[in-house]
Design a protein around this nucleic acid. Structure first.
Lengths: 210, 210
DNA sequence: GACCCATCTGAAACTTGTTCTAGATTAGCG
DNA sequence: CGCTAATCTAGAACAAGTTTCAGATGGGTC
């Protein structure tokens, strides 16, 4: 863990900006990954297949994404950015911040239901990631936090309590997804869990209960 | 996924009761697993090494535990049973149910801090487990639920709201562990998250509508 | 255009989880 | 005891993630 001998492609803001061909390669790789993951989930994303499908040598694939988990976490980041865009255009409408957050997460959940295999690949990679991926996972986490904070629609800086609540919401979100993906919880149960945890967000209209 | 052609060793209450030698083998395997996991976490648990360390052929190891994840989930089950025993003997003392649950989870968390590599192996296996392990993961989940319900010390059957709260607490527990294990959250932060989510117990918050 | 260096390619090699096979051992039973 | 089926062993074989390396290609510089 000394100075990073990593490729210049590792971070979000690359030291060396990518050439056009490199950008295109990266796109092709992520697209191939999405395609394979949508078909069969985590196991169906095989590095050799990703390389072939994106017309890139295996070694090159590993230069762009140093492991399968990195690759899938990057895919999740990609998807989350899309989601964030979509949500910005059509934000949740409810009056209550807690309800807005729940609404937002349920919207994301429905997106996952449409591509359960893809969801499987991304979420499993995210929770399986070890320290070597923590920077990338952190980026995903910050994106998720941003989405939730947006949904809360708060004015000004979030309080420490609000940040705690948001972290717990994210915990619940990830773990509930896992239980759903592995067939141990129903869609209805995930919904209940999300709504329950969103109760941690203070309702401004209502004072704290006794 | 038709009729199970699995070994009679698969479930908790085996169809064929194990002979003494078989029981001893199982013990040796789990002990070897714990030992290797304690040394280097998930990656250090290598099936060939587990087999050798427990003086069992590789094929036999796979007969007892059909995959590495099964093996580690069984290890977690083992550890949780110990924890449950310990907690029964010295239950948390606080007046407030929420505080008792938080206290209990923090105790478990301190146990994990003593063996972070072992924790890594078990928790990563648990969240990485796919459908083929869902029965075993479910057993672990039920054990965890039992521990939390014990800590709540409730009289009579838990209400649906209480069960939701407990599920959300478990979600937070698992996911917070993950973030700690991958170095993205401090011990203090895990503590805060646990205490935050335990707030769902005492004051039955209204679920947000989506 | 010639040269240089980083990058990319193709293919083999290595690692570790998992499966398979042939033969030895064990447990249960008459 | 002797038989039979299940279990166990040793080891090869296979699958997929990862690494490595020799050579080809591309982009920038003189």
């Amino acid at each position: 863990m000394a100075t990073e001998p990593r490729s210049p492609l590792a971070s979000l803001a690359p030291a060396t900006p990518l050439t056009e061909r490199q950008e295109a390669r990266r796109r092709r790789i992520l697209q191939a990954t999405t395609q394979l993951a949508s078909r069969g989930g985590f196991d169906a994303v095989q590095m050799r297949e990703v390389a072939e499908l994106s017309s890139v040598a295996l070694g090159t694939l590993y230069r762009y994404f140093p492991s399968k988990v990195h690759l899938l976490v990057a895919t999740m980041q990609d998807q989350l950015e899309h989601l964030h865009e979509t949500l910005r255009k059509r934000p949740p409408t409810d009056q209550d911040p807690a309800a807005r957050v729940a609404q937002t997460l349920m919207r994301a959940f429905r997106a996952m239901q449409r591509e359960p295999h893809l969801a499987d690949a991304m979420v499993r990679a995210l929770t399986f990631a070890d320290r070597s991926v923590s920077a990338e996972v952190d980026t995903v986490s910050r994106l998720t936090t941003a989405i939730v904070l947006d949904a809360m629609g708060l004015t000004g800086r979030p309080s420490p309590e609000q940040l705690s609540a948001v972290r717990v919401i994210e915990h619940t979100w990830h773990s509930a997804l896992i239980t759903w993906l592995s067939g141990r919880a129903s869609i209805a149960q995930v919904k209940i869990d999300i709504e329950t945890v969103c109760g941690l967000i203070g309702t401004p209209a209502e004072p704290a209960r006794a």
